[in-house]
Simulated scan of single mutants.
Amino acid sequence: MSHTAHIRSHRKPRRSASRVAMRAGVAGGVLGTLAVAGTSASSANAAEPVTQTLELPTLTSDLAAQVAQSADATEQAAANYRLGAERDAAASKAAKQARADLADAKKKAEARKRAAEAARKKAAEAAAERASRTAERPTLTASASVGSTSTSVSTATGSAAAVVSFVKAQVGKAYVSGATGPSAYDCSGLVQTAFKQVGISLPRVSQDQSTAGTQVSLSNLQPGDILYWGGAGSAYHVGVYVGNGMFVGAQNPSTGVVERPLSYDPPSGAVRVL
């Protein structure tokens, strides 16, 4: 037995305890210092307690600044990404609108081109028709006027005089399509009725009347000759030459039966049936 076994220890027994101390600073997931200490004493004469300390990096001001800069950079990158996305969307929308505007402009240009082409074609057709009518309608020259005047000086006699007298008596009466008198006429109805007075039966329509007799020159007209406008066999109007460069015809609903000079509406040709 030890000679010191009966002597009480001068050390006071330590109480059982466990202590955990933690100090942390969070900035980008960095911890400060974590210390763990544990002691245990099973009896009054137990051994000295064991203490263990774990040292972690301390959050310094430089590291905090770096973390803040990293956060700022991340936020700026996100803002730049959003701005780029917005710009891309705006550019895409603008490009789409530009394509739509271009397509619309092309359609309008094509429509204007078609309209202009149609107008040119219509004008060309009208000019060709006028030229055709002019070619079919011989111009009354001075010699023709002299010739017609010289023939009109002589007094119409016989059947020609009766035809001339009849058509002049109808001047002032109404024009009615299809009418043959006695109060109204159309152009071929007047001519047919006039020649009926002298026992000559003529076809009813202008086209046939323009070929009913012998074709004569406009420079050699005589009272009683039938004048026609348009081609022989396709005439659209007829009248009766009454001498002195004048003719009588049922012109249209607004004028009715009138007496006019040949220069008023030069005829295309003439036929003689008397």
Rank of each mutant, 00 (worst) to 15 (best):
3 H>L: 15
6 H>W: 05
9 S>L: 08
12 K>N: 12
14 R>S: 14
14 R>K: 11
19 R>A: 15
25 G>Q: 10
27 A>L: 11
31 L>S: 12
37 A>Q: 07
38 G>T: 06
38 G>H: 02
40 S>W: 04
62 D>R: 14
62 D>H: 12
63 L>F: 04
66 Q>N: 13
75 E>C: 11
75 E>S: 14
82 R>G: 12
83 L>V: 14
88 D>E: 10
92 S>C: 06
94 A>C: 03
95 A>N: 05
97 Q>C: 06
103 A>C: 03
106 K>F: 10
116 A>Y: 00
125 E>M: 11
131 A>Y: 00
133 R>K: 11
133 R>S: 14
134 T>A: 15
143 S>L: 09
146 V>L: 15
149 T>W: 05
157 T>H: 01
164 V>P: 08
167 V>K: 04
169 A>K: 08
171 V>G: 03
175 Y>L: 10
179 A>Y: 02
180 T>Y: 01
182 P>I: 07
183 S>H: 02
196 K>R: 13
203 P>F: 08
208 D>M: 11
210 S>T: 01
213 G>D: 06
214 T>H: 01
215 Q>W: 00
217 S>H: 02
220 N>M: 05
224 G>S: 05
228 Y>D: 02
228 Y>S: 09
231 G>E: 08
235 A>E: 04
237 H>F: 03
237 H>L: 13
240 V>P: 00
240 V>H: 00
245 G>L: 00
247 F>L: 13
252 N>S: 15
253 P>A: 15
257 V>D: 07
262 L>V: 07
269 G>R: 00
269 G>P: 03
273 V>M: 08
274 L>R: 01
